[in-house]
């Protein structure tokens, strides 16, 4: 559905996108993950023909994307990172306005507007101006404006920033529902749990390049970490730490504020081996957690940095 090949975008001496390649299939919820300045928004800008790029090709629905590709644009819905609605218009007028940019027929537009209002749960706020809406409702209005014309492709740039948990859940459920209704969705977010929860495939971007892409499971298999064990342990000696580091499958260890954190490669009985060592050496320990790798671990290992830094 979307094919990006060797995309290069430079801002003077800075290379924002460095021969970036991406393939997004129809019906996917595709997550774009990357720290600030990694190139996510630039990819979206190029994809929507808002930005000129220096090299490469972008095809959407099998056609090359240009600023005047209105037939393609007709099938795309955009939800920007910042809320972009008219303060002087009511909720209904805003949604109707953005629908009017795609749909000329008044009756059809009215129906679509009503559906979008119902989808975003804004029935009680139709006549209110955006100024009077809470942050969560405002985000929902922003989404309703982007998806009102029922596009085949929806691009969402961090739609849940600064949203309360209740609204966030509603938004995520809505995105899943849009996908079930047949829309392909490109989703960027800082929140890895969200991406993990709703995206069928994910690309990790840094320095304008795709470092890894695949399903969550595929990405997790790409990294060394198979398990992370966290343990409360009082006064561990340097010798004990060295011994634990030398246990089979342990490849990273940290000990701070009496919290021992171990990264281990995937293997059977990792936790039992650690607990046995503690018992044999009379080391007092408290709560113990064993976690399978998360997207955060994937991100950390691939990019060498935390996503939210």
């Amino acid at each position: 559905m979307i094919h990006i090949e060797n995309l290069v975008k430079r801002y003077g001496d800075l290379t924002a996108l460095d021969h970036l390649n991406l393939d997004i299939k129809q019906g996917e919820i595709f997550g774009l993950l990357g720290p600030n300045g990694s190139g996510k928004t630039t990819v979206i800008g190029c994809l929507l023909a808002l930005l000129k790029y220096d090299k490469g090709t972008i095809t959407i629905f099998g056609k090359e994307m240009h600023p005047d590709s209105y037939e393609i644009k007709k099938e795309i819905g955009v939800v920007m990172q910042n809320v972009a609605v008219f303060e002087q218009m009511t909720v209904w007028e805003n949604i109707d306005y953005f629908c009017g940019l795609y749909v000329k027929d008044k009756t059809k537009r009215k129906k679509l507007t009503e559906e979008a209002i119902a989808f975003a749960g804004l029935e009680d706020y139709k006549k209110m101006r955006p100024k009077k809406l809470s942050g969560g409702l405002l985000r929902r209005l922003n989404i309703a404006c982007g998806i009102v014309h029922k596009p085949k492709l929806i691009i969402m740039d961090e739609p849940t920033v600064a949203v309360d948990p209740q609204s966030r859940n509603r938004i995520l459920e809505g995105i899943a529902e849009l996908n079930r209704q047949g829309s392909t969705i490109i989703y960027t977010s800082h929140y890895m749990e969200e991406v993990e929860q709703i995206c069928s495939r994910i690309a990790i971007i840094d320095h304008g390049r795709v470092l890894a892409s695949g399903t969550t499971e595929e990405l997790k298999k790409m990294i060394k970490t198979g398990e992370t064990i966290t343990m409360e342990a009082v006064a561990l000696s340097q010798k004990a730490l060295a011994d634990i580091r030398n246990l089979p499958h342990v490849f990273a260890i940290s000990y701070e504020n009496q919290i021992l954190k171990l990264r281990l490669t995937s293997a059977k009985h990792n936790l039992i081996r650690i607990l046995n060592y503690m018992q044999e050496h009379d080391i007092t320990f408290g709560r113990v957690f064993s976690e399978l790798p998360t997207l955060n671990d994937v991100f950390l290992e691939i990019t060498g940095k935390e996503l939210r830094n």
Binding site: L48, L50, P67, D68, Y70, K73, K74, I76, V78, M80, Q81, N82, V83, A84, V85, F86, E87, Q88, F98, L101, Y102, C145, G146
Partner: peptide
């Protein structure tokens, strides 16, 4: 001012109506 908001401009440029 409403039409010139950067995000509003982007949203409008992404639409099916030519600039």
């Amino acid at each position: 001012l409403s039409f010139m908001q950067p995000d509003m401009k982007k949203r409008m440029l992404c639409s099916a109506v030519s600039s």
